[in-house]
Nucleic acid binder design. Structure first.
Lengths: 241, 241
DNA sequence: GTCTATAACGAGATAGAC
DNA sequence: GTCTATCTCGTTATAGAC
């Protein structure tokens, strides 16, 4: 009888408390790092008792997992939105939009970035549950490359013979409708993109690179060339020797 | 009176204890992460009392700094040795040797790698004392590029106009005898190299890249092309459209 | 059924008195 | 340099409020 009203209230309360826990956990992530994330401290800050948290997260590791999935989803959503905004543009513009969205998200969420792309948290191993969220940005890149490929606007990057079997396996796993050369180059570009972002985020560019937007923009354009989105001649526009 | 003999002994003992402290600290780094490095735990494991440690390191932060400098030096030395071994080879071979040495060191010292290239340790900021050690690998790359440049074996990477002022500033700071195009490309390649290594090290290549040596080798060759060590035509050897 | 609170465990860290 | 009293932590069992 109360069944039509109360469930909604309870469910709403549950969602709110869950969100509050995660928010506070993220605050601690920023302050002390993932290694020191403590259920008790989260509970204390929220005015709860630690055992009450277990109604929402069965363990500290599950809370970490939730934070990781949230971070991947937040980043993925940001990238997807940026991609949609330029959906009708050329592949290079779409590629760059996704890369720049990822960088923007990372700069705005450095600790969550460190959580998902930094060193693993000691004593914690991420479950497979995180894979779908972690794949969102990659699927976006595959989208862009697929469109370029079908429109014949994609060059095949070079692929040494010793790497071909591995490239074919990667393509079969990740994007069977793309050439192995492309998939191998994408994986490399993906790692390199995160190198650029990580260096900026973790301070390696301090005293080295000051004007970072144009630097990143250019690096991303070079990566686009690396995966075959730009033909070499176009890439080095207006250059002599 | 004992003054003529004991100083040597004392100095030796001090060096040995200092080394033992750092070794134990590195063990803890591997087990619990840099955030949880605690002087007390180090002391306990060494059978000392915590206050005794302060005779060797005035604070936890100074111990961290020593570990960071050691890590950079260890990596730099590994890279320098690998470079010397191929000193007479071509620039691409030298470039690749340094990159592969860095990767090898990182795979052998993942936690020290995380310490120097991962997210900053909460509450700790590295002093400028770390800069010389941190620069060693970069200087090696500059060496290779300088030799190639002086031998006319270096292509100028493309450089958009918006990036030229920044590139000139970077060149003036880091390598005044190299073209700005080269220096900007080197910094980007440097970050990308660490992206590749970080992804392998921190598990992002799990279930994605299995045969990692050839993958890395090829990526490094592409990076060499990016900094101008290989001309595009050579780079894409024996490839059609 | 759903939640919170109390209390406790075993383990480890820490501060300070001695 | 040692010892102890007091913290922290993740986690569970239990009891009671809504």
């Amino acid at each position: 009888m109360t069944r039509s009203t109360t469930p909604g209230i309870r469910a709403r309360a549950r969602i709110e408390v869950t969100a509050a826990i995660k928010d506070e956990a993220r605050r601690q992530l920023a302050a002390e790092g993932a290694a020191k994330l403590s259920l008790r401290a989260v509970a204390r800050e929220l005015g709860m008792v630690s055992s009450a948290l277990y109604r929402y997260f069965p363990s500290r590791d599950e809370l970490l997992t939730a934070l990781i999935i949230d971070a991947f989803d937040s980043m993925g959503e940001t990238a997807e939105r940026a991609h949609e905004a330029v959906a009708d543009a050329g592949p290079v513009q779409r590629w760059s939009a996704v890369c720049e969205a990822v960088r923007g998200w990372a700069l705005g969420h450095p600790h969550e970035y460190a959580l998902i792309y930094g060193p693993p948290v000691p004593g914690y191993t991420a479950p497979d549950t995180t894979v779908p969220a972690a794949s969102r940005v990659g699927l976006l890149f595959i989208d862009v490359l697929r469109d370029a490929y079908q429109g014949l606007g994609l060059a095949k990057p070079p692929l040494p013979a010793e790497l071909r079997p591995e490239a074919e396996r990667m393509a079969a796993d990740q994007a069977p409708d793309l050439p192995p050369e492309t998939v191998a180059a994408l994986v490399a570009a993906w790692a390199q993109l995160y190198g650029l972002i990580g260096f900026e985020l973790f301070g390696q560019f301090n005293r080295v690179v000051t004007d970072r937007e144009p630097f990143f923009r250019h690096a991303v354009a070079q990566l686009a060339q690396g995966v075959g989105l730009v033909f070499p001649q176009e890439g080095r526009a207006g250059k002599g020797s």
